[in-house]
């Protein structure tokens, strides 16, 4: 455990120093995107990995957070930074409703309900033009030209999110979440109000995801329904980040975010310009293959199956007893 703390500490220090050493705004941007995904992935993992309620609709909370920040500017003329404060809470309010509807269902039916929920919110954002500007989207002028403030803010948020989930999982809530995941009927008979604790997991998860959404609005300066309420780029990506990194592990989503954003960027840029343009279209296939590979050979993700992986590469070292 101590060794783990040290590793995390060194990583955190390196990440704090990174933008001071690497001045390229491209790489700083990549890390900011990774931090955003650490937040979304970790939040998804709290609900799906720990509490066992697999969500296919996390774009709902991301989008609501982003639109909260955006609408504050377009409708109220308030700085989008207030959205950082409000976005998480509005996302929680929405989560209360989503939970009220979807937690009537269990297992795959819950997942399907959230999938439908995500699409409903995307369509609302497209069609409620008087509020959201519809497909035109919302454009704001970012406050800072430099990436540094965004870098440190997103880093801080990601770290706070991981720490919060770490603490939750070592408390009564954490025990209750995993009990519900393992057997909901047994959990009920153990005196656990399963409905309440599923909602708590959802609310915490929605809060951080909404926060990430509000940050995204501030950072990118532009959102439209197909970006922030996207099934493919947000909801499914959240699941990929979770399962590739390792569900029900604290650092899994962080690792997953690095791998998935890295892969996505590699393809988007056609292997950094080295491959022909059409290669960039191939990312969906590669994501699919990756998921199949992870499910078949390392069902617990990179972090969960780390011992298995390290044995492949460092056969000798792993044998020590």
């Amino acid at each position: 455990m101590k060794k783990g703390n040290l590793t995390v500490g060194i990583f955190a220090l390196l990440l704090l120093l990174f933008p001071l050493v690497v001045r390229s705004s491209y790489y700083q941007h990549l890390l900011i995107i990774i931090f955003i995904w650490v937040i979304i992935g970790s939040s998804w993992n709290l609900l799906a990995g720990y509490a066992g309620q697999v969500s296919f609709g996390h774009a709902i909370f991301f989008g609501v957070g982003a639109y909260t920040a955006g609408i504050l500017v377009t409708k109220l003329g308030v700085s989008a930074w207030w959205g950082m404060l409000l976005g998480g809470f509005i996302a929680m309010a929405v989560a209360l409703f989503v939970g009220w509807v979807c937690f009537r269902l269990r297992g795959p039916y819950f997942a399907l309900a959230t999938l439908a929920g995500g699409e409903i919110f995307r369509l609302i954002a497209i069609n409620w033009e008087s509020l959201t500007e519809g497909m035109v989207g919302i454009l704001i002028i970012p406050t800072f030209k430099s990436k540094l403030p965004y870098y440190y803010l997103s880093f801080g948020l990601a770290a706070a999110c991981i720490l919060a989930i770490h603490l939750i999982m070592r408390s009564k809530w954490g025990y209750y979440f995993v009990s519900i995941r393992e057997d909901q009927d047994a959990a009920e008979s153990m005196g656990i109000n399963t409905n309440r604790y599923k909602n708590i997991a959802l609310l915490v998860s929605a809060f951080f995801t909404g926060l990430a959404g509000a940050f995204y609005m501030n950072y990118m300066g532009f959102i439209d329904p197909d970006v922030v309420f996207s099934l493919h780029y947000i909801s499914i990506m959240a699941i990929l980040v979770g399962i590739v990194g390792g569900v029900a592990t604290i650092m899994g989503p962080a690792v997953g975010a690095v791998v998935m954003v890295g892969l996505q960027e590699t393809f988007r840029s056609s292997f950094f310009g080295l491959a022909p343009q059409w290669v960039s279209e191939g990312h969906a296939i590669v994501f699919g293959l990756l998921v199949i590979f992870v499910i078949m050979f390392m069902a617990n993700g990179i972090v969960g199956d780390w011992n298995k992986i390290s044995r492949l590469f460092w056969r000798r070292k792993a044998v020590r007893t």
């Binding site: 408390s171 209750y176 995993v178 057997d183 047994a186 153990m190 005196g191 656990i192």
Partner: peptide, 28 residues
């Protein structure tokens, strides 16, 4: 207890019972 047992499979025996004990106490 259940006739068809319902262990929380992927938790340790201690964690199974600890989760249950939270019914009466609050600290870990």
């Amino acid at each position: 207890t259940f006739q068809v047992v319902k262990p929380l499979g992927r938790l340790s025996v201690l964690d199974n019972v600890t989760a249950s004990a939270f019914c009466r106490v609050n600290s870990i």
